[in-house]
Design a protein around this nucleic acid. Structure first.
Lengths: 118, 118
DNA sequence: TTGACATGAAACCAAAAGGTGTTATATTAT
DNA sequence: ATAATATAACACCTTTTGGTTTCATGTCAA
């Protein structure tokens, strides 16, 4: 179920939201406390928190009249996994060959370079 | 210099652009070839490529009447570095303590929980 | 040289993003 | 009870996104 209107990739695309995550990495914070770190309105911050919440990157629970937000970094694993695919390309050039040799040795390496000509 | 109007985080926020990157991970491709993998117009794909290019995630060179795009994954290291900060929070709960003990043993752990009350 | 092909560029559009301000409601402190 | 606080819920606005269509330009093949 876990409301997924907003993708984790989209959630972290905004610099303000990334900064919010940084703040919450240190402490759980109420909306007003978070707002004090920015120059934008409290309402705007609340919207960012709502988006982060939809991506399950934060959770908020009401405590008295405050709503305390808490970091939930688990969805970031999706980004990490996505990134992992590309690491082979920048770690070192040999790793590309290594990947091909280990995962398919049916001549696909040749295909990789000529596919687009067909 | 490296034109930076578009952030790498924003560039990868769009699912279509992530799919384009996947295609280019296999082969260098011309715009039309990329377009054939989607249901959107060639112009729309060209715009996505432009955004990816601004984030330096791809480079394009003209070959005859075609423009061949090539994956440049290096900017993804920025995302990787950003993610690294949060890994301590999901790997396992003990790693938080481990981090604190290894990097500063001046009682900061206590501060982490009370900062927001000051 | 003429047509077909690949891209570039411009004008336009609807919807979403990122903001704002106002008003209403619940909670705490006096 | 009353005033102050913290947030929620709206209504509204402007800019950006992601897409379209149309037209122009450069290149290749006959």
């Amino acid at each position: 179920m876990t409301a997924a209107k907003h993708d984790v990739f989209q959630a972290i695309a905004d610099p303000t939201r990334r900064e919010v995550l940084r703040l919450l990495a240190n402490n759980d914070l109420a909306i007003s406390e978070i707002t004090s770190h920015f120059s934008i309105s409290r309402t705007a911050v609340a919207k960012h928190l709502h988006i982060l919440s939809e991506a399950n990157l934060v959770s908020g629970k009401k405590v008295g009249r405050e709503k305390i937000y808490h970091l939930q970094p688990e969805p970031l694993t999706e980004v990490k996994q996505w990134l992992a695919y590309y690491e082979q390309f920048w770690n070192n050039k040999l790793s590309i060959l290594k990947h091909v040799v280990e995962n398919d040795n049916e001549g696909r390496f040749e295909d990789r370079k000529t596919d687009h000509l067909k």
